[in-house]
C-alpha cells in the first residue's frame, strides 16, 4: 500500500504467475476462450500477480514459480550472471522475485536473486563512472529496470559533472532581466 501510486510497483504486479486452483470457482471468466465460465479444481492458469496474491491469501490457489525463474535461467546465472539477458526474461526480475518469495514453496529464490545481483553489480554497474557511453550501450539492453535505474543515476551525475568541468556559461541571466520594459 505504501507504493500505491508507484507505476513500477503496479507494473510488477501485472506480471503473470502460474497458479493451481485448489477449489472450483464458478462464474469467472479467466480465459475468454473457455466454453464455460468456471474453473475446475486443480486447473493450471496464469494469473497476474495481484490477483494470484489475493487468491493465495484466501487459500484458493497455490503459486508456482514463473518461467523467468526456471532451471534454465538459474543455470545461466550460475554460469555467468553478468551476461544473462534478464530484461527479456522479466524486466522486474528482482522486485518480482522479492514479491513472490514469501508465497512460493521454493526457498532458493532469495539466494538466487541476491547472488545474481551481487555479481551483476560488480561486473557491470560499477564500471559506469569511467566507461564511455558506447561500451555501456552494449550491455544496457540486458539490464533489468532496477539496474537501469542505477545505471541512469550514475550516468546522470557523471554527465552533469563533465558539463560543469568543461565550463559553459558561468553566470546565468535571470529570464526576467533580459526583457525590456513594456511601453505603455
Amino acid at each position: 500500500m505504501a507504493k500505491y501510486y508507484d507505476i513500477d510497483d503496479i507494473l510488477i504486479e501485472e506480471e503473470f504467475a502460474p497458479v493451481i486452483f485448489h477449489k472450483p470457482v464458478n462464474g469467472v471468466t479467466i480465459d475468454p476462450s473457455a466454453e464455460t465460465s468456471c474453473v475446475e479444481q486443480g486447473a493450471k492458469v496464469e494469473l497476474p500477480f495481484w490477483l494470484a496474491h489475493e487468491l493465495h491469501l484466501r487459500q484458493a490457489v497455490s503459486i508456482n514459480l514463473p518461467a523467468c525463474f526456471d532451471q534454465k535461467t538459474r543455470l545461466e546465472i550460475q554460469a555467468d550472471a553478468a551476461c544473462v539477458d534478464l530484461r527479456s526474461r522479466c524486466p522486474y526480475f528482482y522486485e518480482f522475485g522479492c514479491k513472490l518469495q514469501p508465497l512460493v514453496t521454493d526457498r532458493t529464490i532469495g539466494i538466487l536473486l541476491s547472488t545474481a545481483f551481487k555479481i551483476r553489480y560488480k561486473e557491470r554497474l560499477t564500471k559506469v563512472f569511467t566507461a564511455t557511453h558506447l561500451t555501456a550501450s552494449k550491455f544496457l539492453p540486458f539490464l533489468t529496470k532496477e539496474e537501469t535505474n542505477l545505471y541512469e543515476a550514475a550516468h546522470l551525475s557523471m554527465t552533469t559533472f563533465r558539463k560543469w568541468r568543461t565550463g559553459g556559461p558561468r553566470f546565468q541571466r535571470a529570464s526576467i532581466l533580459g526583457r525590456k520594459r513594456k511601453e505603455s
Binding site: F117, L156, S157, M158
Partner: peptide
C-alpha cells in the same frame, strides 16, 4: 556527490536482497 545517487541506490538494493536471507 558524484557517487551519491548510485551508491545509495545500490546499498538499498543490497539491503532489499539481504534482508530475506537473514530471516529465512
Amino acid at each position: 556527490n558524484l557517487v551519491r545517487p548510485f551508491a545509495r541506490r545500490a546499498l538499498e538494493a543490497f539491503y532489499k536482497h539481504d534482508k530475506p536471507e537473514a530471516d529465512t
